[in-house]
Write a protein that binds this DNA or RNA. Structure first.
Length: 273
DNA sequence: TGCCCCCTGCAG
DNA sequence: CTGCAGGGGGCA
């Protein structure tokens, strides 16, 4: 499931492989997943690949930018002109073909994701972008800004807080569980019960775990791959996610799994307090 | 604030 | 064959 580290890995791939290319055609195979008129970007060149939380924002030389959300099972796959490929396949929903003959395939078997064309001068007014919270790896994500956010959510549990994209952008279920293990905090803890030192360690853990996720090119639990089709290796080092019933890497206690905030939630009942 | 829904593949 | 996987919108 693409979270911040996976989307960032894809963004870097797009920057390397498709930025600078001119769009020759856009083939939409499932209309509900493409918001806007494909012809509006034909002939435009891609000028940058950005990211806000889990949303990719590709700017073009024309009027429209291309927003892409991968949700649960979206993939963006780049194929060079003339390269042998099994694509498109049945999960392929949109195909971008460039002037060079290179192609970018948007695959999504559960069809939760979307591609949307949006006027670039109005991006700040985009209803979804407006709601996205602070970028945890940017410099303006400071301890004081984090504490201010926490103080506005006293009654929620810390796991739900971390998953809320309107507060901190980019954490999903995998990284939320991993962050809480790193911070030695139980996912069920109420925000207002966290001590100052716990808040401090939580702040550091968010940045450390997400950075490590990017370094390891993301998590490939099910369908995540980068634009070159490579899987990420973060989960090889996961401490709790998908490790229910296995011994904690630190203390050997068996990892527990519960359901919280509508998500499978994994933690070490000994290391996390 | 929490639960259901969108949808499909696959584990049990 | 049922239920789980979970990002995010919508609703009570």
């Amino acid at each position: 499931m693409p979270e911040l580290p996976e989307v960032e890995t894809i963004r870097r791939g797009l920057e390397l492989l498709v930025v600078g290319q001119q769009i020759n055609s856009v083939e939409v195979l499932l209309p509900k997943m493409f918001i806007g008129s494909a012809e509006d970007i034909v002939g435009a060149s891609l000028v940058s690949a950005g990211r806000r939380g889990k949303l990719l924002i590709i700017r073009t030389s024309g009027t429209f930018s291309v927003l892409i959300h991968l949700k649960m099972t979206g993939q963006l796959l780049f194929v060079r002109a003339g390269e042998t490929t099994s694509l498109p396949e049945k999960s392929t929903k949109v195909i971008f073909t460039f002037e060079s003959g290179d192609r970018l395939f948007f695959n999504d078997f559960r069809t939760f994701g979307f591609v949307q064309l949006f006027e670039q001068t109005k991006l700040d007014e985009h209803p979804f972008i407006r709601k996205i919270g602070i970028e945890p790896l940017e410099n303006f994500f400071t301890q004081s800004s984090f504490y201010a956010l926490l103080s506005k959510s006293n009654r929620s549990n810390i796991k739900a807080f971390l998953l809320d994209q309107t507060k901190i952008a980019g954490l999903g279920n995998i990284y939320a569980d991993e962050v809480l293990f790193a911070a030695k905090i139980l996912p069920t803890r109420r925000v207002d019960s966290l001590s100052f030192s716990e808040r401090e360690l939580l702040f550091e853990s968010i940045r450390a775990v997400l950075s490590k996720g990017i370094d390891l090119r993301g998590s490939s639990h099910t369908s995540y791959v980068d634009v070159s089709g490579e899987r990420g290796v973060f989960l090889n080092q996961a401490t709790v996610y998908q490790r229910a019933g296995l011994p904690c890497r630190d203390c050997g206690t068996l990892i527990t799994k519960i359901r919280l905030a509508g998500r499978g939630t994994h933690y070490c009942p000994n290391c996390q307090k």
